[in-house]
Design a binder for these strands. Structure first.
Length: 518
RNA sequence: CGGGGCGUGGCUCAAUGGUAGAGCGCUCGCUUGGGGUGCGAGAGACUCCGGGUUCAAUUCCCGGCGCCCCGACCA
């Protein structure tokens, strides 16, 4: 990476990036943090070790929550026979436009060129799973006979392929990693409860682990998952004012059990189709993390998702000093490790400490400990935070001073865990504040237009009673869509109550959440 | 699939109708070390592919291919 000149040096903690071009800013952060890059394969992404380590942390947190709600992991095939995928009509037509299809099973050399062997054409094409409902329900048919087999609560960690026209690292790639839960229940009530429960799991994860505040609600008919009776989602607001769907939980009713013919015998001995749910979150969440917290210096990670929570940087002049200081740095690291902190010592020689600061800040490491000769002498440590809570009107250099603190050694080490916990909370608060600053309760279409065309946009709470065609009109005029019809408790107090549709003026019982989106 | 932009050392880019240059990175040496040390030496490019114009093309023209951005499609 190029060394920035003095003018382009960045001060950490800028919540709103100076970059006008968010696309470029987003890519810069990913690059600085070494998270991912485009691969030579169209629309596909290479996740680099640091990015993958974040995903692993997410996986662990989510998996714990799935297990705690009674779910088990399993794995199903990558390939779905075409006839299986097309059994559920709406589901098939919903995904039809973005399927990768395998048609041959062998290659052959023709005139010196290796091509699919025409003789090896499959009798039935195989679709690379865009999602696994169909193949999983085909299997559930064999697993479910009695009400005693229910509920069946399964989750799968997998990759899926959706052949998107346009891709963006993490936010939309042709192949992505995700988890998909697929559950079967004896009653509609139980399935609905599961649908709502898993949305709560996602919302809890988003806020308490990712430190990204979300709005919970239901999708409009047009945005519903193909084949679902109800789609719930959590919606986050990114720093550029665009909304992002961060997770979905679907109530599938009996659609998939009917098309796969999955019946069970209830307590009365009668045969019934089972009720289904499915729910998923993907590596898109890493995109959400980046777009929510990062600044011009690079990535900012909530401590709970930081693969390295504390980086220890030894500072030394000569070999003699190096030996002593690195030894002390390793001791400090060992003490932190015993307290459950993910810590690393950057003892690389020949790289200036300042360069290391920039590097680890770019990667989003929450805390840095500097150990130098003076610390050894005084028995102290320097602790620097990746970010500090904003103070209005504060100058950058004041803030920089506030980011660092010099503490007696024991005190410094004891302060790490509480500081990480505090930073986790501060990050959520900061994201909440940014979102609040970009959220409006709007009643007039002129105000709506001004908000999205002049003020950068964000979340708009508006009354809506339009039809699908009128939703389309809003999309054309303002590039906005209904992100969700929020649950009642999700509305801010000033947005509650009845009113009139912002477009048609027709009476509306409740406001919906509108924004531009990814 | 439409609209725009770009393909030049590893990266970011410059220049030129006469076969290329910088910064960063990399290697070696010294120097330096609490916010991107400084100096010196060195390695590294058939200028995306194909064709055309020309005495001569990296440069101009045409056609591919690839990438990026903006739309349509979507987690």
């Amino acid at each position: 990476m190029n060394k920035p000149d003095n003018q382009s040096r960045t001060e950490p903690n800028a919540v709103t990036p100076r970059a006008q071009d968010y696309s470029q800013w987003y890519l810069d952060v990913i690059k600085k943090a070494c998270l991912a890059e485009h691969s030579a394969v169209r629309g596909c992404m290479v996740i680099r070790p640091h990015g993958y380590a974040i995903w692993e942390k997410m996986q662990r947190e989510l998996d714990d929550r799935f297990k705690a709600t009674g779910h088990e992991n399993a794995y199903f095939p990558l390939f779905i026979p075409l006839s299986l995928l097309t059994r559920e009509e709406k589901h098939a037509s919903g995904f039809a436009k973005e399927c990768a299809v395998v048609t041959h099973h062998r290659l052959k050399s023709v005139n010196g060129e290796i091509v699919p062997d025409p003789e090896s054409k499959l009798e039935e094409p195989l679709v690379v799973r865009p999602t696994s409902e169909t193949i999983i329900w085909e299997q559930y048919k064999n697993w479910i006979q009695s009400y005693r087999d229910l509920p069946l609560l399964i989750n799968q960690w997998a990759n899926v392929v959706r052949w998107e026209m346009r891709t963006r690292l993490f936010l939309r790639t042709a192949e992505f990693l995700w988890q998909e839960g697929h559950t079967a229940h004896a009653t509609e009530k139980e399935a609905l409860e599961e649908t709502w429960r898993m949305l709560d799991v996602y919302a809890d994860f988003a806020e308490n682990v990712m430190a990204v505040p979300v709005i919970k609600g239901r999708k409009t008919e047009g945005e519903r998952f193909a084949g679902a009776l109800e789609t719930l989602s959590i919606e986050g607001l990114m720093q550029d004012g665009k909304g992002l769907q961060m997770g979905t939980s679907h109530y599938l009713g009996q659609n998939f059990s009917k098309s796969a013919d999955v019946k069970f015998q209830n307590k009365d001995g009668r045969l019934e189709f089972v009720y289904a749910t499915s729910w998923g979150v993907s590596t898109r969440l890493i995109g959400a993390l980046i777009m929510t917290h990062s600044d011009d210096t690079g990535l900012v990670l909530p401590p709970k998702l930081a693969p390295v929570q504390v980086i220890v940087i030894p500072i030394f002049k000569n070999e003699e000093e190096r030996l002593k200081i690195v030894e002390e740095a390793k001791k400090v690291a060992a003490e932190l490790k015993s307290r459950g902190v993910a810590v690393r010592v950057d003892d690389r020689d020949g790289i200036m400490p300042g360069a290391k600061y920039y590097e680890w800040e770019g990667k989003g490491v929450p805390l840095r400990i500097e150990v130098g000769p003076k610390d050894l002498e005084k028995g102290s440590l320097c602790i620097a935070r990746r970010f500090v809570p904003e103070i209005q009107g504060e100058k950058p250099e004041e803030q920089r001073r506030r980011r660092k603190s010099f503490l007696p050694r024991a005190e410094a080490i004891a302060s790490i865990v509480p500081t990480l916990e505090a930073m986790q909370k501060e990050l959520l608060e900061r994201a909440r504040a940014v979102r609040a600053g970009r959220t409006r309760v709007l009643d007039k279409i002129e105000d709506f237009e001004k908000f999205f065309k002049e003020e950068g946009g964000g979340f708009a709470w508006v009354h809506w009673a339009g039809n699908a065609g009128q939703e389309e009109e809003m999309a054309k005029r303002f590039e906005t869509s209904i992100r969700c019809i929020p649950f009642e408790d999700q509305l801010p107090p000033e947005a509650k109550g009845e009113g009139n549709c912002i477009l048609t003026g027709r009476p509306s019982k409740q406001r919906v959440l509108m924004s531009k989106s990814y």
